[in-house]
Structures are given as C-alpha cells and as structure tokens.
Design a protein around this nucleic acid. Structure first.
Lengths: 200, 200
DNA sequence: ACTATAATGGCACCGGGTGCAAATTCAAGG
DNA sequence: CCTTGAATTTGCACCCGGTGCCATTATAGT
C-alpha cells in the first residue's frame, strides 16, 4: 500500500520551525534562502519544493489548518445567532495548546512585523475569507460572492488582525480575550453612533 | 529662486499611467520593469528612483492622496456621530471626478486582482489605517494604538476592500453606494444577531 | 539483482532591486 | 562665454528569490 520511491528527507513543519528560529535571530531580510537550506541540510532547490516562496516558509502548514476553520463553521448549530457562531469559530481557530504558546508568538511576530510577510499574508488570508463568506452566505441565504458576506468576512479578518497586533504589542494581554472584544464591536456595531447615548 | 540642477525628465503620475496601460494590456507579471522603462524612454535605474519597487508603480502618488483623508477627518464636525463622520470621509476619499472613472477602474483592477499587488497593498494601507485609528482614538478619548481604534480602522478597511471587489466584479454597480452599504453594516453591527428578529 | 517510483540536487538562467561612480543638464555668477 | 555647483540621469556590477531541466539517489515490490 505504501507507494514508494525515495522518502522525504524532512517535513514542512520541521523546516518551518527551523526557519522561524533563524529569521527571529538574524532577521528575515538578513537571512537568505540559502542560509535556511544550509541549516536544514538540504539543497536550496529542494527547499523550494517544500515551500513555493521564502514568504511561505514561516506559515508552515496553514492550508491544513484552514480545513479546521471550515469544519468548525460547518458544525455550528443552526439555532445559534450568526455572530455567536462566528465568534466561537474564530476563538477555536486561534486557540493554541499551552506548549506551543511561545512558538506561536514568535511565528506571529514574524508574520505581522516583517513587511514582506505582512504583505504576503493577504494572499494567505484570501482562502480564509472565502470560507467565512461561504458560511455567512449560507446562513443569510445569499450567494458567497455577494457584497454582504464578503464584507463581513473582510471585517472579521480585520478584527483578527487588530487583535493579533494588540496581543503582540502587549505581552500581558490575552489573545482570545482580544478576539472576543473585537467580535463584540463587530456584533453590536460602532460605538458613538446616533443610536448610542450621546458621548458627552 | 528656482533651485536648479538637472530637471526631472518625467513625473510619477506620467510613469504610473503609462505603466498601468502596459500592465493592463500585457499583464503585470509578463511586463518587466525594463519594458516600462523602455516605453517611458528612461533608464531602468531611473525608474527605481521614481518608485521604490515595481509593485509601487500602479499606486502613483497615493501618499499625497492620503493627506486628503487626514484633512477630511480633521474637518469632521464634532457633533457628528462617529460612524457618520467615518462614512463621509470614506466616501469623499473614494470619490473620483467623472473624467478619471475609467482610469481609476483600470488601476484598481490591477491593484485588487494581481496577487503581487494585492499583497503589496497591505503595506500601502498601513498608513491609511493609522490615520483612521488616530481619528477614532481622538473621538473616543483613547490612545491611537489602543485596541478599539485599531480594530475599527481594520474593519473600515475591510469595508472598503469588500466594496471595491464588488464594484469591480459588477460593472453595473456604483462604488459609493457599495461603500455606503458596508458602512451601514459596520455602524449597526452584524445581521442575524440575537438582538435581531429571528431569521425565519 | 532489476525496475518503477518519487524525492533530492546541481546548474543555468531570468527578473527585481541596490550601491557606486561617471555623465548629463540646468541656473547663476564672473 | 565660460566656469561652478546642484540635482538628475544613467551604466554597471552584483545580490537574491524563484524556475526549468535533467541527472542522481533511495526506497518498495517483483
């Protein structure tokens, strides 16, 4: 059954963590792809078979993780309000086992603070947004490509990224709490609205 | 008075429109920087003095345009609800004179549909978000770097990008109307919430 | 051992981006 | 008219990310 040929000499995950270490120590721009390949003991050409680009390396197996987001949303009870379903899925998606906390933080620090990676992340989040939009569309009885679902997906992404930025800038903060706060704003709408009590 | 040296041989705006033409015709990835330079009649090296990267070329003078966003927000009457002020500034920022409609559409089509440019746009919008966050912070009496202002800025960016995507995908649609719809969601919060009438 | 299979690795090549130093073009002053 | 100085343009060498191609290597099954 085990279809054979030469076995892989390493894994995406291994390479990703190794690279994150290097990038964090020496800096992303200052570390060349050759450096990573050399440290991993493989050829540069091979590294590009594990990852499509240097920017993709710190992401590890994000696509695999995306599947979970889809599953959580699909498993959302139908009687749950839309915002509550989104909130729970978002929390679940960003929950990380205690042991991996430090590693997760370092990875996200790279992804959110290195300009090249910041930019690249938008390509990664495209699929994530489509998953969210599809769920919202289904709940609201619209097309996945319609304006409302797409807008909500973008806004939820905004909530996530703002929470992550805050989390990274304040070591004492808790990521899930921040995500919760963001969701609250998204659910209830902007403060200081005509519907609200006057500000002063 | 005119402090002299050799005069510039062209302008950012000229190069930008020329390049947008080329990129639209032949494709962004298929058009090399040398092609653009050749078409403009300047050296490749010189082109990189007008723009810091190939990705920046289609943006033209975006930084200058950013100043207007700051001005509109600063000029917002203090008695206007927060959401209404943001809505008006967003509309004003994205209003384009009739004559430039076609050009604007082609530019945005590139910026939103070419992956490399999609990614790069996040770096461009960073400053835009900070402007919005600063305004929100001032209105709400918080620090510009605080979570709430940053989250709202991210969400407003999401509203903008969703509107633009919709506008590009549907030629019959009106951009300002779409922006308005997005702002409405942001103001009022998500539909299908526990606070709303049950869905069916 | 032999073969099919699947991964690794070396090499040449392309395109974006930069540092550096020389060449160009203008205004102003002697 | 010629020089000087400022600001811009340009050519060149070089680095790095990324790809196409093909040979090489390591495994499983016969």
């Amino acid at each position: 059954m085990t279809r054979a040929g030469r076995p892989q000499s390493t894994t995406r995950a291994e390479l990703s963590t190794l690279a994150i270490d290097l990038f964090t120590e020496r800096g992303f721009d200052e570390t060349s792809v050759d450096d990573v390949a050399a440290a991993a003991g493989i050829a540069r050409r091979t590294l590009f078979r594990y990852f499509p680009s240097k920017n993709a390396i710190p992401w590890g197996d994000f696509d695999g993780h995306l599947g979970k987001m889809r599953d959580w949303l699909a498993a959302t009870p139908g009687d749950l309000p839309l915002d509550e379903g989104l909130r729970r899925a978002l929390i679940a998606f960003n929950e990380v086992p205690e042991v991996e906390h430090e590693h997760h933080r370092r990875r996200m620090q790279l992804l959110l603070e290195v300009p090249a990676l910041q930019a690249h992340s938008m390509l990664m989040y495209h699929e994530w947004r489509q998953i969210v939009a599809a769920h919202v569309a289904q709940r609201l009885g619209r097309e996945p490509g319609a304006h409302l679902p797409q807008s909500i997906a973008w806004q939820l992404l905004g909530v996530s990224l703002a929470a992550y930025e805050q989390w990274l800038s304040d070591p004492a903060s808790d990521l899930l709490t921040l995500l919760d706060e963001g969701c609250a704003v998204l659910s209830a709408g902007l403060p200081g609205t005509s519907a609200d009590v006057p500000l002063r």
